[in-house]
Amino acid sequence: MSTTAMPTNTKWWNGGRSPFNISYGKVMMWYFLMSDAFTFGAFLISYGTLRFSQNHWVDPNHVFNSFPFAGHSNLPLAFVSLMTFILIFSSVTMVLAVHEGHNMNKKGVEKYMILTIIGGLAFLSCQAWEWTHLLTGEHAVWVNGHVEYWNTTVSHNPFGPEITINGQEYATPGPISFGSYFFEITGFHGFHVFSGVIINIIMLIKTRMGHFEQRGHYEMIEKAGLYWHFVDLVWVFVFLCFYLI
């Protein structure tokens, strides 16, 4: 921390200056992100509550074990780790864009904003593939004395506890809240990624047009960066709650 640059007896609350020593816009972005953190937190905690109330939950390694163009091979955690690294990397390019903004380097900001936008779009494509895979992939389920083929949707969960019938293993219907929570939370997160990409595109256009250079500072890039890092932060927890545990 560089608070040592301040005189030790500074009275922050005497007026005339920002008591947080950052601009109004950035304070408000932080407060928005804090409220958003509570929204996501409430979603994830209600998911946890329902999961704790069930005797059986879905084994994520069983549900998320596929990879594009890999057919029916069993690859648990592979695709989601790709998504995680895409998002971490786009976070790094974003923070590098902010850094170039501090140095008033317009070309650098443009370069890293473009990389960040590409990362965001790559993540969204991955998520689109995963949703499609879950919504269209059929699994044999033993329902009421016969086999049915179910997709994973908000009303069907083909990953219930397994039973053996005539020497053959079948899944039974699982708790339907799995699908609704998965699509709700990853959907809400994906929507944040989508709006983040839109915001980043607007910031790129404004940088191109030289708005920030005229203004004398690249603070808007910092605010967009805060939002983008928050999206990464939420993914860290979504990754934990849905894929790892």
Binding site: S2, M6, G16, R17, S18, S23, G216, H217, Y218, E219
Partner: peptide, 13 residues
């Protein structure tokens, strides 16, 4: 490059 006069210091980057 401060955004307003109320900001008296900037973190070192």
């Amino acid at each position: 490059h401060t955004a307003s006069a109320e900001i008296t210091f900037h973190p070192e980057h």
